[in-house]
């Protein structure tokens, strides 16, 4: 466990499946994270990010498949103090101070760094004596982050650490996280902001419908993801032909309009014009949701087109 080999595998998911009743929240995820990496799990709400994290932390048991954290079952890795975590839900316990709470958590780990160091990284020095129930949203999120890193764990897992934070709080949190990562720690965080994953992660794993849709550096991912949607009134055009136009990554048909996701909207519009297909043209920046649609469609033989065979 103390090997410093650069290729040491910290997290390994092999064909992991987890269902809630009829819903397969995690549907055969394979994932490998190595020591020192900062990895983003990127996906829309309901993609299976939180379930994957629950499985990783031993809070959930997989229906099938294998999960290893530092080469052993999650519960053992947690018990040995190799993992720190920040979960999405849950509030901090009332009537204790920041120092008491973070200090208590720190004390449960076998080889934790000094408390003052953790408080400094999380930018909590000035708030150490404050009751945790008297903190703002951004401040309490920093306390939660301090809890995750208080034990000096080699792996820190953060489930949507910046959800519901304002820009300034978000910036402070990422500064703290980078300071922690700079010590050679492995960090995994989930987010539904492409931009956040882009700026802060070495590697992005895109999750949708409970499986890994794509993974790579942020450039890899961005090249896969359309950044514009071109929309026209469909008329007599065949959606399958539209799909073959330059730049196009996917086509969805809704209420008589074709929504064409593209990585090169200029080329796509010119090609549409050449076909005489420009009717009620709209061009918009694609949100992350469209990006996921594009990725989902790329990865599945059965496309998400609706009503294209009328």
């Amino acid at each position: 466990m103390t090997s410093t080999h650069a290729e040491e595998i910290v997290v390994r998911f092999t064909d992991v499946v987890k269902s809630y009743g009829p819903v397969r929240a995690v549907n055969g995820i394979n994932l490998t994270i190595r020591r020192g990496e900062c990895v983003a799990l990127l996906g829309p709400n309901g993609a299976g990010k939180s379930t994957s994290i629950g499985l990783m932390l031993g809070l959930l048991l997989p229906d099938s498949g294998r999960i290893e954290i530092f080469g052993r079952p999650p519960e053992q890795a947690m018990r040995s103090g190799q993992v720190g975590a920040l979960l999405q839900e849950g509030s901090l316990i009332p009537r204790v101070t920041v120092r008491e709470l973070v200090g208590f958590i720190r004390g449960t780990y076998p080889s934790a760094p000094p408390l003052e160091e953790t408080l400094r990284i999380a930018n909590l020095d000035d708030l150490a004596g404050r009751r945790v129930d008297k903190l703002s949203g951004g401040q309490s999120q920093r306390v939660r982050f301090a809890i995750a890193m208080a034990g000096g764990s080699d792996l820190v897992v953060l489930d949507e650490p910046t959800a519901a934070l304002d820009v300034e709080s978000r910036r402070q949190l990422w500064t703290a996280m980078r300071a922690y990562a700079a010590r050679g720690k492995t960090i995994l965080f989930s987010t539904h902001y492409l931009e956040e994953a882009d700026v802060n992660a070495d590697r992005i794993v895109v999750i949708g419908d409970g499986s890994v849709l794509a993974e790579g550096t942020s450039d890899d991912i961005k090249s896969l993801v359309a950044d514009r949607t071109v929309s026209i009134v469909l008329g007599a055009d065949d959606p399958d032909e539209l799909r073959a136009l330059p730049g196009v990554t996917s086509v969805t048909v809704q209420e008589g309009r074709a929504h064409i996701a593209t990585i090169d909207s200029d080329a796509t519009v010119l090609a549409l014009a050449a076909r005489g297909a420009v009717r009620g043209l709209l061009v918009s920046g694609a949100g992350i949701e469209e990006a996921f649609v594009a990725l989902t469609e790329r990865n599945r033989p059965g496309p998400v087109r609706e009503g294209s065979h009328r």
């Binding site: 932390l57 809070l59 947690m78 018990r79 040995s80 103090g81 993992v83 720190g84 975590a85 979960l87 839900e89 849950g90 509030s91 901090l92 316990i93 958590i105 449960t108 780990y109 076998p110 809890i147 034990g151």
Partner: peptide, 17 residues
């Protein structure tokens, strides 16, 4: 109440047995 606010889960994430 501790369970409701997520404190028990937080404890489970520490090495405490």
């Amino acid at each position: 109440e501790d369970k409701d606010i997520g404190w028990l889960r937080q404890l489970r994430l520490t090495p405490l047995s």
